[in-house]
Design a binder for these strands. Structure first.
Lengths: 346, 346
DNA sequence: TTGTAGGCGTTATCAC
DNA sequence: GTGATAACGCCTACAA
């Protein structure tokens, strides 16, 4: 097992001082005679030298590592985000440390602590609980925090990249209302999550606009983790007066929910119209293909990475940014009019 | 923006030298009087001090960061592995840097270079090409490399955690043979991938054992990336004498392949029996539910993490480990006998 | 244009 | 038990 070459080895090999090597490595940091430079580069090549990131960090304070904190990577929504962020970051020479919180605020807080140890320059996070802000200390220390997908009630000094959840839910609801549905159920996320809350607001808004009263029995805020989606669907369908349409606004529970619908033998869209949040691949291969709200996952990832990277390069004014992207309703085959509309008419 | 407290600040606050603080932080590294210790701990608490990992690394050479390199995170197989590895690593106090290769050997090689810069203690990787080993230099430098899922032809000094691909494919093939199928098609991965190769070997083995000749037209090794799965299915089904059964042994193309089967209106399992590698959630919600080869994803992740962590803690003999796990055939509804077997009979 | 020296935050080796 | 002090590898004034 060899020992990695250091800047000193290179200097010796090239017959110069370490200062020259350093300058040769970091163009613009100082003058180096062209031919000296070539000699140094040759030495680097020969010794296969790579500067140690740890040493650089230590001396500069800066870093080219960011952290990404998501509930889990099994949820295709978050793995999609993670994939895009990792890819995007690499193209900018930044590495990504990935952490999973399991939707557990305690674990999240603990991870924030261990993060302080690492010198990451920024943190992109989909926070577990909007009510508390465990990231304040990071911000104080100059570690930039970017919320993605979900945001915090108190987000002082924190950037936000999210979708317009309220309007997305509104759109989905309006779609069903226009088809004549009034008994519309919604399975959403826990109300300590900003996105889940906004979606519910959008739902209620659309219902109110249409003058349709919301039956609170049909509103099901459930946890992201676990399999509660299945239970919620079960009890919804067992209602004496069951819903004719269902919006699954809890992406993490979409699969469980839909599977339960299918297992119960309810016809989609004949007996139940369905709109689901998050356009995961399987929604397209389900029978019938599901009408979904498609979130611009790549866009969210790109924006957050871009913010993170430029922040740690010291660009951008310190003012927090807020980016809200539009989601899209993708019509497929899981919704139909409650009653066939009269043909012709008058 | 505060500046993070250093060991010196703590020492001053506690009225001791930095050496004492260091010993207090790292129990066992030297003697500290109990009451001094308490004073130091109080100071740490008060200043909210966290030792900087970069400085530790620099001085010790060691590190508690490992890297994980997978083709992408969009493939549920790899996101499952990543999720489990990140989780498992955390529970051992290790952080994970995630990299994606996009199945591109050049990018892979480049990432290996940038990795040398970071002081990661180990690399868990699903390599893109089994023919070349871009990791040799890492091994030389004492960075432990663990191949997961796929392996290298020349894996000197490299640990391997994989499934028994050959037998998995053999099992799947035998299942179809027993149902009376002989025109069995297989869509597998590129032959520069060890797992794809082994699976094809298993397929041929089972066919040979049964005395059934392999129609080479029905053997389709295709790339992991892109949408070739769809094309392969299309041309398979367009054959004058199409297959009666299909094994999709290319997990990354399973979705595309199956979707194409469905689009072409072919009845499953009536017209075509189907076995698919990788038990992703959607295979269960597809109509009909798909018979799959289920890989022990969590197990693979746990083993590789365990090896990685113990390696970087210096445990374990230097001899490379090879762990081969068994995959499982999960019977669902996508396969049926070619001809109904005679009822009763004698 | 080049080299010397100091410091980044930590741990380890010594004396005391 | 405790405290200077020297590394670890790199960058950067500043002096030559």
């Amino acid at each position: 097992m060899l020992k990695a070459a250091t800047i000193r080895d290179v200097a010796r090999e090239a017959g110069v001082s370490i200062a020259v090597v350093s300058r040769a490595i970091n163009p613009g940091s100082g003058p180096v005679a062209p031919e000296t430079r070539d000699r140094v580069l040759a030495a680097i090549e020969k010794l296969d030298y790579r500067p140690r990131a740890a040493a650089r960090e230590l001396q500069a304070g800066a870093t080219t590592t960011i952290a990404l904190m998501v509930p889990d990577l099994i949820n295709p929504f978050f793995s999609g985000i993670a994939d895009a962020i990792v890819y995007e970051a690499r193209s900018r020479g930044v590495h990504v440390m990935v952490l999973t919180t399991q939707e557990d605020p305690h674990l999240e807080a603990e991870l924030v602590q261990t993060l302080r140890t690492r010198s990451v320059g920024a943190l992109i996070v989909a926070p577990t609980d909007s009510g508390t802000n465990p990231f304040g200390r990071l911000v104080d220390l100059g570690i930039h925090v970017i919320c993605v997908d979900r945001e915090l009630d108190d987000s002082a000094g924190i950037d936000v990249v999210t979708i317009d959840n309220e309007n997305s839910a509104r759109t989905a609801t309006q779609h069903l209302l226009q088809l004549g549905h009034e008994r519309i159920a919604i399975i959403t996320g826990p109300q300590h999550s900003s996105s889940a809350r906004s979606r519910l607001v959008g739902f209620r808004g659309a219902m109110a606009d249409a003058g349709v009263e919301v039956d609170e029995q049909l509103v099901r805020p459930i946890a992201y983790r676990g399999t509660l989606g299945s239970d919620a669907v079960g009890s919804l369908l067992a209602l004496p007066h069951p819903p004719t349409a269902l919006i699954v606004a809890n992406g993490a529970q979409a699969f469980n929910s839909v599977r339960r619908v299918r297992q119960s033998g309810i016809g989609v869209p004949d007996d139940l119209s369905l709109v689901v949040f998050d356009d995961n691949p399987w929604t397209d291969v389900f029978s019938p293909a599901l009408t979904v709200i498609r979130q611009p996952v790549k866009m969210m990832a790109m924006h957050s990475t871009q913010i993170a990277v430029s922040r740690l390069q010291g660009d951008r004014p310190p003012a927090p940014v807020r980016i809200e992207l539009r989601a899209e309703l993708v019509h497929r085959s899981s919704c139909r009019p409650l009653r066939e509309p009269p043909v012709g008419g008058d």
